[in-house]
């Protein structure tokens, strides 16, 4: 073990390397969730022009579906990782058909207000059913234990979260930017009327996009379940941080959302090491600085 010190200008604080790498790892984990959630927000915003305020609630719902599957049908983590996103994604499809489709002609703000209301409903119902205390979710046996890397101990589950979310993010980026389906999506974002004229069913595409974005949130929720407790309010505070992430990155670019998510997670982790009292607020402070220096966001186009 060795120590790592800040420059004297920043206070000159010294930290054992193990603690530093430990926090960096936690930062990367948080960054995985920021990236998955802001990616989902960006995909939804691109097609629907709606900021999905219920994204945090849907993330929480993913974790709860995983919890319920384990409690009532004994289905463990791996099935939950597939089934929970599908179930929550399906509720997303229903939400889009029943509520959101009526809002596309109105001001964006109504989409925000409606999904905020949905978030309150989802969180309220779950809280009434399960109370607001956290419920534990056991880690799958196959991912217990960890590796000693010499400079730090790496728990297997955490390594898996980072790899899996990176994989899903890059997969999503690939589908949207490099495939024919993605080309249709991007075209429909630019000019839905023209794309419809080519015989592509844009309304169905919009519905499925929302379902997919919501499923991403639920996927993040299942992955979060063994790390954090499963609780009704786990999404509502996270979503506000993710909003700040989205403001920093700008929603114009898929890759931008991923990079910003991971990057800010790491910055937050480092802050926890050196300035623990600022770790809650550092992302908001960065947002304020970005607004001053580059109002359109790091990857954004000027609106």
């Amino acid at each position: 073990m060795f120590e790592i010190c800040l420059p004297v200008l920043l206070g000159g604080k010294c930290i054992p390397s193990g603690a530093l790498f430990g926090q960096l790892l936690i930062g990367l984990i948080n960054g995985s969730f920021y990236a998955l959630l802001s990616l989902g927000l960006a995909v939804i915003f691109g097609m629907l022009n709606i900021i999905n305020f219920s994204h945090g609630a849907q993330y929480m719902l993913g974790a709860f579906v995983a919890y319920l599957m384990l409690q009532y049908s004994g289905l463990g983590y791996w099935p939950a990782l597939i089934i929970a996103p599908l179930v929550v994604g399906l509720t997303g499809v229903i939400i889009e058909r029943v509520f959101l489709q009526w809002l596309y002609k109105l001001d964006h703000l109504y989409g925000l207000l409606l999904t905020f209301g949905l978030a309150l409903i989802i969180e309220g119902v779950v809280r009434n059913k399960f109370g607001s205390a956290g419920l534990p979710y056991t880690m799958p046996d196959s991912l217990r234990g960890g590796q000693n890397l010499g400079f730090m101990f790496l728990p297997n589950y955490r390594a898996w979260v980072i790899v899996a979310s990176l994989g899903v993010c890059i997969g999503t980026w690939f589908v949207i930017e490099r495939t024919r389906l993605g080309a249709y999506l991007r075209a429909a974002t630019e000019n839905p009327t023209l794309v419809r004229a080519f015989g592509i069913n844009v309304p169905v595409m919009i519905t499925l996009t929302y379902g997919f974005g919501v499923a991403l949130a639920a996927f993040a929720g299942v992955m979060a379940a063994p790390i954090y407790n499963v609780s009704p309010q786990m999404g509502s505070e996270l979503i506000i941080v993710v909003f700040a992430v989205v403001v920093i990155g700008g929603m114009g670019s898929i890759l931008g959302a991923i990079v910003t998510g991971f990057g800010l997670g790491v910055v937050e982790g480092l802050t926890k090491v050196f300035f623990p009292e600022a770790s809650n607020t550092v992302i908001f402070v960065i947002m304020a600085i970005v607004l001053l220096v580059r109002p359109a966001g790091l990857f954004g186009r000027r609106a």
Binding site: W102, G117, A119, L120, I121, I122, E123, N128
Partner: peptide, 13 residues
């Protein structure tokens, strides 16, 4: 909380 959410949704729609 749920009732507030329902009011939000019905007001917007």
């Amino acid at each position: 909380l749920v009732i507030q959410g329902i009011i939000f949704v019905s007001c917007v729609l």
